[in-house]
């Protein structure tokens, strides 16, 4: 397995979309680690519940889209905002080594965890050398 990153961020799609619907889109902060089984990705999605979260894989592109809903009282007048969008979007291109049918996703306290396993045949293997 080479050291080159196998999960490459895909720019463009998310940005183009945000211009259409005027609502600023927030790019969530992520952590990615690789272990021998595959890749684990964590994304900060504060205010997002499972019904407002969409994780899609299409043509080797993994897309995370979510919408945050923060309950607020009626008649609220915003005075200071450091987070200026309620939509999150980020996409990555996945190398074919990964088994996209076995991706596991869980959401807890606004943190999404994605476990993306490597295909069986892509696991690093040691090849025995026979001496004839």
């Amino acid at each position: 397995m080479s050291d080159t990153t196998q999960v490459v961020e895909r720019q463009g799609n998310a940005v183009a979309q945000s211009e259409e619907d005027r609502t600023p889109t927030v790019v969530p902060a992520i952590d990615i680690v690789e272990n021998k089984n595959g890749i684990i990705l964590w994304a900060d999605l504060p205010g997002v519940t499972t019904d407002k979260l969409e994780v899609k894989v299409h043509d080797g592109t993994l897309t995370i889209e979510a919408e945050a809903v923060v309950p607020t009282p009626a008649g609220l007048h915003l005075q200071h905002a450091e987070i200026r969008g309620s939509r999150f979007a980020r996409s990555f291109s996945l190398s074919p080594d990964f088994d996209t049918s076995k991706i596991e996703a869980s959401l807890r306290d606004g943190v999404l965890k994605l476990t993306i396993p490597r295909r069986e045949e892509s696991h690093p293997r040691r090849i025995e050398v026979r001496i004839d």
């Binding site: 990153t5 902060a29 992520i30 952590d31 990615i32 680690v33 890749i39």
Partner: peptide, 9 residues
């Protein structure tokens, strides 16, 4: 066992 690729959080 793990190798980090991104640490933004």
């Amino acid at each position: 066992e793990t190798r980090p690729y991104a640490q933004e959080r």
